[in-house]
Structure formats: C-alpha cells, structure tokens
C-alpha cells in the first residue's frame, strides 16, 4: 500500500486548468518533496488530496482509502500554507480544540499537548493568545497542531516560511524524527536547500503535471567537481591527479577536477599526502538542487 497514490487527478476552475493530471505514488515512511514553480498547481494538488477542493476528474487514495475518507483523515496531519488559526485562543486551548476535532479524549490530550508544546519550544507561551504570537511562533504552533494525532502521513505546505534559522533547524529535526518513526511526510517547499537536506524523493511539477520523480541521491549524484586546496603542490603532483578524474586545472594552491565516483576522494587525499603536499581541504561541489530545478523545470518559471 502506498501512503499516497493519485491517478490523473485533474482540477479546472472554469477555463483555467490548475492541475492537468497528477499521477504519483508516495511510499509509506518516506519524506517526499513536491517541487515546482509558482502556479504549477502544487497547493491545489495538496488541497485535492486533503478534500478541501474536489477534483474535476481522476482519483486518489490516501493510506489505502479514497479521498475524503474520515478514518484516513484521523491519521493525517496538515500544516496549511497560509495558516490562519482562531487567534483569540491560547496556544494550549488551540491544541485542545484541534485534538478534540481529531476525536482524541481528554486523558490523551493532557499528555500530548504539553509534549508538543515542549517539542516546538512554546511551553512558556502556552497561556498566551495566538494573536500575540510572531509569524515564527504561529508556524510552530501550526506544526504542533499537525502532529497532535501521531499521524501516519503529514502534509507540510511551506513549513519553513517565516522561520528564522533556529526555527528551520527545528522543522528539519522534526521531519527527521518523523521519518525515524516511519511517518510519511509530504513536503511542499520553495526552500530547495531544505528539501535537499530532508527529502528521500522529489517530484517536479510543472503546469499541473509531474514531469520527473527521482530519488534525491541519484539526482544529485553523478559527476562531481572537486576543489583541492593544498600547499607545496608541484605541477607533477597536479598532473598525477588525472588518474582519478578529468579537467584537472591547477592554480596556485588550488586544483579543480571532475570525478565520477565519490570513492576517488580518499584516494586523492592519500596520494596528495604521499606526494608531500599539505592538504587543507578537499571539497566536492555538488550540483545543487537549485541548478537541477532550473534544468528540469526551465527558466520560464512554468509560465
């Protein structure tokens, strides 16, 4: 069983096709990144999966149940993108409300609410009304809300927008923790560096269609450019690096070359030391997800 399986999910708003035909499978327990330019239909896709928007055609299953099934929804957590909550509630009351909507009983909530407040670092603010919260604090309480029911599947729509670096690290840690517990995470984020760190697989969306699904590892692996910084390099030593890669260029204390396999890195280090060079750094330059994104989606931003 897949955590999410969609089959040609389509949504039209009048003449405007927001999602042309979304077909994808998300494995249970993986962290799945959903990438695409603005207006590619990402938010509409998530809204269809969560039953907020009804698809024009096509179908989908969440946790093995058809869209809108309430048993499935009891096991799903959701942090909306433009999250707005009832801001006249205090943080603790807010979590209690959403816990009750999940059908959780008071005994369980008495344990769960302090746990979550602690997890997102809002325990000192539990009796403050949400209207007094900063954007980052609201994002944190929203995240806590999405985890109340120990969900099997969590949708996070731009979870790190509005967060400072500390908050972003917190979100990353939470996602990592969720994965270690076998929770499936569906992550929609513009922050590609976040996606790069946290996701197992990513789907690229353009014009409401999946144009590529790939494991992040195989996406960013392949050829790697390496920068070596070492003192006492002789031209012969630099030339000798050709046995591990091509395009070797020496410039003072720096040598760049392109390798095809990461196992070359320790061999290069041993070689340089054996040649009497003082090695300060060997830095692989990965092709960033951002460059990949632009390669795959194109620079027109999908317009």
């Amino acid at each position: 069983m897949f955590a999410i399986e969609t089959n040609n999910l389509r949504k039209e708003f009048g003449d405007n096709v927001a999602v042309r035909g979304l077909t994808l499978q998300v494995q249970q327990g993986e962290v799945f990144g959903f990438l695409g330019p603005n207006g590619a239909g990402k938010t509409t896709s998530i809204k269809m999966l969560l039953g907020l928007v009804s698809p024009t055609s096509g179908g989908a299953q969440l946790l093995g149940q058809p869209l809108g099934n309430r048993q499935a929804r009891a096991k799903i957590g959701f942090l909306p993108e433009h999250f707005r909550f009832h801001d006249w509630l205090t943080a603790a009351e807010f979590l209690k409300l959403h816990g009750e909507l999940y059908g959780m009983n008071n005994d369980r909530l008495r344990i769960r609410i302090p746990e979550l407040l602690d997890l997102v670092g809002l325990t000192p603010f539990k009796d403050k009304q949400l209207r007094t919260f900063s954007k980052g604090m609201l994002q944190r309480i929203g995240l806590a809300q999405a985890l109340l029911n120990d969900p099997a599947l969590v949708f996070l729509d731009e979870p790190t927008s509005g967060l400072d670096p500390v908050g972003r690290r917190l979100v990353r840690d939470i996602i990592r923790d969720l994965r270690s517990r076998g929770t499936t995470v569906f992550l929609n984020s513009h922050l590609l560096s976040e996606v790069e760190i946290t996701c197992d697989r990513v789907a690229f969306i353009k014009h409401g269609e999946v144009i590529r699904v790939s494991e992040l590892k195989t996406l960013v692996e392949g050829e790697t450019s390496v920068i070596v910084r070492a003192g006492g390099l002789t031209p012969e030593t630099a030339t000798g690096l050709r046995q591990w890669g091509r395009d070797v260029r020496a410039d003072g204390d720096y040598v760049t070359l392109t390798i095809t396999d990461d196992s070359a890195l320790p061999a290069i280090a041993r070689y340089l030391v054996a040649q009497g060079a003082d090695v300060y750094a060997i830095t692989p330059q990965r092709l960033s997800l951002e460059e990949l994104f632009i390669q795959i989606v194109g620079t027109d931003g999908g317009l």
Binding site: L50, A74, P80, F83, R84, H86, Y102, Q145
Partner: peptide, 10 residues
C-alpha cells in the same frame, strides 16, 4: 483560511 485546518480533521 482558518477553516482549512478544521475541515481537514476527521
């Protein structure tokens, strides 16, 4: 959008 977090509950 307040309604979104409510109606996605069971």
């Amino acid at each position: 959008g307040t309604i979104q977090a409510v109606v996605t509950k069971p």
